[in-house]
């Protein structure tokens, strides 16, 4: 039996590493991968809580509810797939006009 807290701590560590990547990396593709890492960390929380509530459910009606955590993970994955397709298209489009993948050189909107 693994404490639920371990899963949540692992998820928090992955999320923080994702934020670090987002803040510190300069390559636009790596920044995008850090966002995917954060989405994965949140998915882990959903699945862990789904299992947890399934075990602690008492009535039959309560038994159905925890599964919706896993359905939510499904929706997160769908949105992540859509986001990856559009985001990578934007990256290709940026690279075509600016000839660089470094986010510090894509600064036309900056004052």
């Amino acid at each position: 039996m693994v404490p639920l807290a371990w899963y949540l701590v692992l998820s928090a560590i992955l999320f923080c590493l994702g934020i670090f990547g987002f803040l510190l990396k300069r390559n636009i593709i790596t920044i995008f991968m850090s966002i995917e890492l954060m989405l994965n960390a949140v998915n882990l929380t959903f699945v862990a809580f789904a299992n947890y509530w399934n075990e602690h459910a008492k009535t039959v009606a309560e038994k159905v509810v925890p599964l919706s955590g896993q359905v939510f993970v499904f929706f997160v994955m769908v949105v992540a797939a859509a986001e990856a397709a559009v985001g990578l298209a934007i990256i290709i489009s940026v690279f075509r006009t600016r000839e660089t993948l470094n986010v510090d050189r894509v600064n036309l909107l900056k004052l």
Binding site: P3, L4, E55, P66, L67
Partner: peptide
């Protein structure tokens, strides 16, 4: 919080 087990039938 308690813990989670390796699971229970077809959840």
């Amino acid at each position: 919080l308690g813990g989670v087990r390796i699971n229970t039938a077809d959840f």
